[in-house]
Structure formats: C-alpha cells, structure tokens
Design a protein around this nucleic acid. Structure first.
Lengths: 180, 180
DNA sequence: CATGTATGTAAGTGTGCACTCACAAACTAG
DNA sequence: CTAGTTTGTGAGTGCACACTTACATACATG
C-alpha cells in the first residue's frame, strides 16, 4: 500500500476542484482529474461513486475551505462591530479566491444545478456559509444579502475577465472590489 | 422553400436560448435544439457555424432581449431621478426573467468563458447593458455596480432554488428581491 | 509462509454526439 | 421546359468518454 484510500481521496478532491473549476462538470473528463492526481482513471471510480459523486464531494471540499477561511477572518475581528466583522470576512474570502479555483468552481456548480444532487450540494454550501455569516457577524438580513450580492458580482468580474477591460463600464463594476 | 434561412435562424435561436439555458453548452446536444425548432440537426449545422457559433449567436439574442427590456423600462421612467430610473430598469428586468430562460442562459454562458469566443460574447453583452444603464440612468459608478451585484444575486437565488427554502438564511438572501 | 485484504491498473465496452455528405424537393429565372 | 439556386434531410463516420472487469502488486496477520 503506497497510500491509504482516505489520503488518496483528499488528493483527488484537490485535483477535482481545480479541474472542474476550469472546464466544468460536463467538459471535464475523469481522466483529467485522475492524471492531475497522479492515479489511474479506474481507481478514481473506485474511490468515488461515479463522476457525479466525485463532483458532489468536490463541492463539499470547496465550500469547506470557503467556510474555514471566513471563520478565520471572523476570528481576526472578534468583538468588533458587525460591519467590521463582515469586512474581515470579505477580506479573508478575497485572499482565498486569489487563485480563482474556488470561485470558478462555484460558478460551475451553479451552472449544473439541473442535477438535483448538485443543487442540494450548492444549497448545503451556501447554507453553511450564510448561517455562519449571519450568526457570527451578527449582521442584519440586508447586510448578509449585500455580502453575497457583491460576492456574486466577483463571479461575473472574474468569468468575464473584466480586470483586463479598460472601458468605463468595466471599471465601474470593478471599483472597490477586493482582489478580483 | 418553406421558409427563408433568416426566419429559420430566428426560430432556431429561440430554441437554442431555451435549451442551452436548461442544460448548458456541453450537455445540450444540437439534436435537442433542432428538435425544439422543428428542423433537422443537419440543417442547424448549415445555418450556423458549428455548435459554438450557435451558442455565440444565442448569447447575442439573449443580451439583445435583455437590453431591449431595460431600455423599455427606462422609457417608462423618463426624466425621473437616477434612483427611479434604475428601479424601473430593475423592474423591467425582473419581469423579463420571470420565465428564467434568459437568466439561466447567462449563468450557463458565464460557466463556459474558458472558450474565448464565448467570453467575448459575454463581455459584449454586459458592455451593452452596463453602458446603457450608466448613460441612460445617469447613475454613479457605485449605483451601477450595485445594480449588477443584486442582478447576479438573482442568479444564485434561482439556480440554488432558494425561493423554495424556508430557512432564515435563504429568506435573508431573497428579501426584497423582485420576482425570483 | 500462507491467506486475506487493500491499493492500484491495463485494457476493454458501449454509447452519445459533433459534424459530413450525398441526395431530394421546392422555388426562381430565362 | 430547363438550369440553377435555396431549403431541407437520412444516413452515416469517427471519436471522446463514462464506467467495468480481470488482473497485479503491496502489505498485514496468524
């Protein structure tokens, strides 16, 4: 035994988040994930229940990492006002998605919510993050809503590549957003 | 000649926006679009330059309809304050995406921006809408940004099916958003 | 060492789908 | 009527990819 199955699963999930982030569920062959993880395609199918199971597990890993980062951000602003805590959470999130994999994976997951298992995974992910933001920051409904609205705006900025667009409309959409 | 090629193209594009909205670029066979348009798959390939050409043309049609709706909304609030014009535009947009095809198509398009032609089509679409909002409403950068941020929040609400979720975090994200 | 179990893979199999081609029917122009 | 153009399709072709099966190799335990 070179490795335990559980350790392999972690490796594969990291590769899966990256691969699915780039090309999405349907356009990402399992072979690509397997190659990135350094194992055979057949073994991926033994470790996860089909491509769908792999994607759902990757979604879990993705939101897990997001939730952890936001919790960490909240730690740094412990005891401050809701606005300051939200700001710290936003900063932690901005740092986390600098490499774009986690952001793009969310976009890809939202695009395949016609598959019920994925829709449920997406809801579960946002449930975890949203309830935490609401409880931990002590933020109002409107503040939580705003937090997620501008988070979703980041998705547009990154997928459309607006950082590279010098025109005024693009600059307006980017203005003040951290790190897209 | 039953119909002219140009008329067929319009029919096919309507079918394409609907079909791609539901299952996305990679998971939507051209056969599905052809069947919905009532013609053969082979003829779709003659009318458009491949599946990619069809998707890009559908994106054009999608943003065209969005732009028209927003312009119409602006008409109704002609001469009012920026806030009121933005509100009228938002209302017109909310009406338009009641059937969800146009909203879901945008989500699907954003998910396949790794294909350069699609990325450019997405940018062109948002360029048109954003510049119009900015110019016509006379809105500040921050107002335009907010307009799009809450528009993107609608994408999340619809794809994750949050209207059906009774939990507090979901209610907070939906609160005050028109018609999702 | 023998037996059992977990880790790992090479080599298929079947299917779905993008795209093509040869051909047909309708319409137009002279 | 004939010749040419446009609209339209049925029947392929080839390839990519999800998933399986049979088999190999490492490690543990008695």
């Amino acid at each position: 035994m070179r490795s335990t199955a559980e350790a392999r699963r972690v490796t594969v999930l990291n590769a899966a988040v990256s691969a699915f982030a780039r090309t999405g569920f349907h356009a990402t062959p399992v072979t690509t994930v397997a190659a990135a993880a350094g194992i055979s395609e057949a073994y991926v199918f033994r470790l996860f229940s089909g491509k769908l199971g792999l994607f759902v597990a990757a979604a879990g890993a993705c939101f897990e990492r997001i939730a952890l980062a936001i919790e960490e951000g909240a730690e740094r602003a412990a005891g401050a006002s809701p606005e300051e805590i939200l700001d710290a959470m936003g900063g932690a999130y901005a740092e986390l998605i600098a490499d774009r994999d986690l952001l793009l994976f969310q976009v890809q997951a939202q695009a395949v919510t016609d598959i019920p298992e994925i829709a449920e995974a997406v809801r579960a992910g946002y449930r975890r993050v949203a309830t935490f933001v609401q409880d931990r920051a002590g933020a109002s409904d409107a503040q939580v809503q705003q937090f997620f609205a501008y988070g979703q705006l980041c998705h547009l900025i990154v997928t459309a590549g607006l950082e590279q667009v010098p025109e005024p409309w693009a600059r307006a959409l980017i203005a003040g957003i951290r790190h897209p």
